[in-house]
Design a protein around this nucleic acid. Structure first.
Lengths: 196, 196
DNA sequence: GTCACTCGATAACAGCGTTATGGAGGCGCG
DNA sequence: CGCGCCTCCATAACGCTGTTATCGAGTGAC
């Protein structure tokens, strides 16, 4: 067995291989044996580092939230807070569309039953939400949005955006010609208009 | 191909037992053997009537859309179209919260990969959406909503409502005290206000 | 009666998550 | 150094999964 030139820690590699496997072949390909084989180890590595497949999936979900956070954080900050909000929403959507399987696991049935997220993983997701709260706060400070508690406002914005992304990924907009301009853009515009 | 005897409708019973199993014990309990045992038959019944577990899950999803349709259709019709819209949204949410596992399968990862819905099952879902389009049309006719193409408007309403239900089921509103009054109600109110 | 046919019961196969066992390597300490 | 310990992973097994092949019981047609 030829060992790798530089062995990064196994835990990190398992998460990345699992994310790639999920991204490229879907949740059905994310099995302990397949994962171990592709990562060049055995199934026991999953148990020594995570304790089982559900915990590994939770780690992959946390990785997904981290990537989402980074993607939104990379959006350039301008002097127009409302434009930044719209640009962040676009980045959020692009991140989801670029890896729909990962997004589905992050918010889908993976959150029920044995895959229910723990505080540790939810923390990363809440950090991503805090980005949005900060954007709303900035818009309020600039007078572009009526002042008030920014969290419920951010939650409304996120809820509408998430609903759109989920239905778009699951292909439930087949009755519409252009969901982005017919649903997403006017919906966010209406929300922002009512909030100003 | 002679018609099936209606007396012991195995196909119908499999769908109902599968829905109950999913509802009461979650997706992990929805296995061919467990399903066959609870339905008083063998696993082969799943294959003669559906062709495999993915097709059975699709049938359960169609059953879920039918129940959603019935639940929304049971909402009393008043002379206030906007109030009817809000009441229908409440019925939609109650239906989802009463059976979160089924709702998750209807819109979750079950819609990707081998569980992707076919025209046959999507038709039931589109019928439920048509209810909402009709409600919006009625509100437009009554002048409560600006006239225009009702489908995109209905899609926006549905998107926001669905986004809320998904995040509520997956317990992602832990940072809020009362998601219904802080997110759902103001969000739908803002949407309706901007549309009038 | 006999053929044709459908439906489901049984058993087998590969793959799954998980667990038990044991061996290889690194590290502290005598 | 040599020894013991302890962590990490390879191997193998257990019971489960979806699926398939086989075959028998039942039924309607002629």
């Amino acid at each position: 067995m030829p060992p790798d030139p530089v062995e990064p820690d196994v835990r990190r590699r398992l998460i990345e291989v699992a994310a790639d496997l999920l991204s490229e072949e879907g949740p059905a390909a994310l099995s302990a044996r397949r994962l171990a084989r592709d990562a060049g180890t055995s199934t026991m590595a999953v148990y020594t580092h995570f304790g089982g497949m559900p915990a590994l999936v939770r780690a992959v979900v946390a990785e997904g939230f981290q990537r989402l956070y980074d993607r939104v954080a990379a959006v350039a900050v301008t002097d127009d807070p409302v434009a930044d909000l719209v640009a962040s929403a676009a980045a959020y959507r692009e991140n989801a569309l670029a890896d729909p399987h990962l997004y589905s696991v992050m918010f889908g049935s993976a959150s029920l039953g044995e895959y229910r997220l723990r505080e540790e993983e939810l923390e990363v997701g809440l950090a991503a939400f805090a980005q949005l709260v900060a954007l709303v706060e900035r818009a309020m400070a600039a007078g572009a949005i009526r002042r008030g508690d920014p969290e419920p406002v951010a939650a409304q914005f996120w809820t509408a955006l998430h609903g759109f992304v989920v239905l778009e990924i699951a292909d439930f907009y087949s009755m519409l010609d252009d969901p982005e301009t017919q649903v997403l853009q006017p919906m966010l515009a209406h929300l922002l208009a009512s909030l100003s």
